[in-house]
Write a protein that binds this DNA or RNA. Structure first.
Length: 272
DNA sequence: CCTCCCCCCTGCGCGC
DNA sequence: TGCGCGCAGGGGGGAG
């Protein structure tokens, strides 16, 4: 489910309910996530005061006076603020009980999500240390993309989804950004000119920003911290639109498999 | 180092 | 209606 826009939308919608709250209790109902939830999480989080929320790539961080919880939503995870007396549903694996009676509840049917605890500088954590620059900052520009694609013969779509080169762009937004930049997803990364790299960077930024503005994408079950679905799926140009007209040239959108994932593009206006 | 492929897991829509 | 199959937003890790 969640790529960068969904994680950012979740973070923004949760933040007002979390700031300055003290954590009374942490209930872990199922520890079997992507990695086993460390017992250290409950031990250290209980009694901590939340100072801020932040995001790095697709990781959401709960920053406290004692350290940081690093949360990943995987494919099917969501975080919601609920009332303390609301009974948990199936797959509600973690509750963070706040001192005002609200609960931050983590729901994840597929359990590809994860929770970690880190003290000190969170960017030094092994999960975060090797990540590429944030896509919505100036560090991610055409010169950067051109440099890191030299010597890479992989298809540009797969390069966009490599978290060590570009962060936050998953399967939906890779297809959408390539359409926006009018670049064929099969194009070998090292063949892109500096100009086309710059255009692709602009397209990634624009696509992510528009998705955040729309509250992210809800394909099946994504909801933000208040339980609201996103609306960006209404604006897709190509994703899951096989056979429908391209909004730019009217051509028929095509889908195909690329590295075990589905890719969508318009053969009419996305050039190699 | 890069690339490919598999896997973790549950749910849903489809065809028969 | 029931069942088996393929597929789904992520990403670590091993083989080659």
């Amino acid at each position: 489910m969640p790529e960068l826009p969904e994680v950012e939308t979740t973070r923004r919608s949760l933040e007002p309910a979390l700031l300055r709250r003290r954590i009374d209790r942490v209930i872990v109902r199922d520890r079997r996530l992507r990695w086993p939830v460390p017992r250290e999480l409950e031990a250290r989080l209980t009694g901590a005061v939340i100072r801020a929320t932040s995001r790095r790539a697709k990781y959401l961080l709960i920053d406290t006076d004692r350290g940081h919880a690093i949360v990943h939503l995987g494919m099917s995870g969501s975080l919601c603020i609920v009332a303390r007396d609301l009974p948990p549903r199936t797959h509600d694996h973690i509750d963070v009980v706040l001192d005002d009676g609200a609960v931050l509840r983590f729901h994840d049917p597929r359990r590809f999500g994860s929770w970690h605890w880190v003290e000190g500088d969170p960017s030094a954590h092994p999960l975060l240390a090797a990540l590429a620059p944030e896509p919505l900052t100036e560090a991610f520009d055409g010169a950067y993309l051109h440099r890191v694609t030299r010597g890479r013969s992989a298809a540009i779509k797969q390069v966009l989804m490599n978290g060590n080169l570009v962060t936050g762009v998953g399967n939906i937004y890779a297809s959408e950004a390539l359409h926006c930049a009018a670049i064929n997803p099969r194009t070998k990364a090292h063949r892109l000119s500096p100009e086309r790299c710059a255009r692709l960077v602009d397209a990634v930024k624009e696509t992510l920003a528009r998705a955040i503005s729309a509250g992210g994408s809800t394909l099946r079950d994504y909801v933000d911290g208040r339980g609201n679905p996103g609306g960006f799926q209404q604006q897709y140009a190509v994703y899951e639109r096989t056979g429908q007209p391209c909004p730019r040239c009217g051509g028929s959108v095509k889908g195909f498999r690329q590295g075990q994932r589905s890719t969508y593009y318009c053969p009419g206006c996305q050039r190699a």
